[in-house]
């Protein structure tokens, strides 16, 4: 008996049917749609040789595009980190007219096609646009500058922080805050020492998700960015330009570099989260 219990099994015994069929189909479909194509992406650049790959991803135009994509995504996710937390707090803790409409509207960037968002934002922030015409005299240019890229990426990442923090805030026991208050904590102290540590892991998750989404975003950005090489050209657009020049290996090199950097950043954030939880 002990021999059986200790022996290694691929699957725990179960009376339910269909394990082989469903897992087999899931693995087949996953391989054909996702894994094999991604393997092709990681394999392709190496036909340039190690030096060629290094040269391809360190070309000034590529470095500038990667810097813009990751830099603008970082700023956008920091904006969303602050305001996303405020919106989540407002939706959970306060009552005001129109709250349910705002709650539903938060998911708009998930539902609205990115190209639609892109042309709408451009119309708003172009120098003669609805909002742009008032910013122009102040010397603020949004459309066709890196600032426009930040605006588009802020739009795209908006729901992530709100939707990560909101359920955690809603589940937070009032007793903790009452206990803190009865022990003499001010409201600010209660927030800093009791509420914030509780929502920190989900808040970081939301920021990381918003960042990851923003780094790869294409549709909403290309209309508002102006796409000047070295200034407002994002990395995904550079991939498309390289593809149009039939530079498959170069496109794959930039794509692989984006994946690698995103992966490392998400790994770092996961470790940060594990640390936040352990504390």
């Amino acid at each position: 008996m002990t021999a059986v219990a200790n022996s290694w099994r691929f699957k725990k015994p179960s009376v339910l049917p269909g394990f082989g069929l469903t897992l087999g189909f899931a693995l087949f479909y996953l391989s054909v749609i996702v894994l094999i194509p991604l393997a092709a992406l990681l394999l392709r650049p190496w036909e340039l040789g190690v030096d060629g790959v290094f040269a391809a991803v360190t070309a000034p135009r590529v470095v500038a595009a990667l810097q813009l994509s990751f830099g603008a995504a970082l700023i956008a996710s920091l904006i969303n980190a602050v305001f996303g937390l405020i919106v989540a707090w407002m939706l959970v803790r306060y009552e005001f007219p129109g709250k349910r409409i705002i709650d539903a509207l938060v998911d708009l960037p998930f539902a609205l096609p990115t190209a639609v968002a892109g042309i709408a934002l451009t119309t708003l922030y172009a120098p003669n646009g609805w909002i742009g015409q008032y910013l122009e005299p102040l010397g603020i240019k949004v459309a066709y500058t890196p600032l426009g890229v930040v605006f588009a990426l802020t739009f795209i990442g908006l729901p992530f922080v709100v939707r990560s923090v909101q359920p955690v805030l809603a589940d937070l026991e009032k007793e903790f805050e009452e206990a803190a208050a009865s022990l003499g904590a001010t409201r600010a102290q209660t927030f800093r020492r009791v509420i914030f540590p509780a929502v920190l892991p989900s808040w970081l998750t939301g920021v990381a998700l918003a960042f990851a989404r923003a780094v790869g975003e294409y549709g909403s950005v290309i209309f508002i960015a102006g796409n000047l090489p070295m200034v407002s050209e994002i990395a995904p657009l550079l991939i498309i330009i390289k593809l149009e020049q039939y530079d498959y290996a170069g496109a794959a090199a930039v794509g692989s570099a984006m994946l690698a950097i995103s992966f490392l950043l998400l790994l770092a954030i996961n470790m940060l989260q594990a640390w936040a939880r352990a504390r």
Partner: peptide, 25 residues
């Protein structure tokens, strides 16, 4: 792995199929 496509840029999602099935894929 099932969640993987969410963390991949849409442009890369198209690119991988060009690398497989394109004229020089």
């Amino acid at each position: 792995l099932i969640d993987l496509p969410f963390s991949v840029s849409p442009v890369i999602s198209g690119l991988v199929y060009v690398l497989l099935f394109g004229a020089q894929g």
